[in-house]
């Protein structure tokens, strides 16, 4: 605990606030993930953890490391940048995979307008895209 005692109070308060904010938002996202009823609703819950849940903890870690090391340390931003880039890609791909699976089964979760398969021309276009 010796490195923590050397932090001045004016810096300890924002660090504590950011870390607690990030952890609480992550828990709220996880609870929403448990409680929401539909997969397409549930897809939105982890974004709390990937936006400000992650952001608060990374900013707190950055401030703490900068104060402890005595120089500006920015490499926590690498994690933040990587998560900001990769989380939407993952969620888009998962959403499209779930839509594909629900369509091929004719699931009742989908609204009527989305339940039809795409017309052959557009399906052919999207095939040539890939």
């Amino acid at each position: 605990m010796t490195p923590l005692a050397a932090i001045p109070l004016w810096l300890a308060l924002p660090i504590a606030f950011l870390v607690m904010l990030g952890a609480t938002l992550t828990l709220i996202g996880a609870i929403g993930f448990l409680r929401l009823g539909n997969f397409y609703d549930r897809l939105h819950a982890p974004t709390l953890a990937t936006s400000w849940g992650m952001g608060g903890i990374v900013l707190g870690s950055l401030l703490l490391a900068t104060q402890v090391e005595g120089r500006i340390i920015l490499h926590e931003l690498v994690i933040a940048f990587a998560i900001l880039i990769t989380a939407p890609v993952t969620l888009m791909l998962l959403g499209r995979a779930a839509l594909h699976r629900d369509r091929s089964e004719g699931s009742a979760q989908l609204p009527e307008s989305l339940r039809q398969r795409r017309s052959p021309e557009t399906a052919e276009n999207s095939e040539s895209d890939e």
Partner: peptide, 22 residues
């Protein structure tokens, strides 16, 4: 400040492990 940071980090660990359980 050590007490504040110890509390905040312990709270964050507890809450995050709860989120992992969920």
């Amino acid at each position: 400040s050590a007490a504040i940071l110890t509390f905040a980090l312990g709270y964050a660990q507890l809450v995050l492990s709860l989120a992992a359980c969920v």
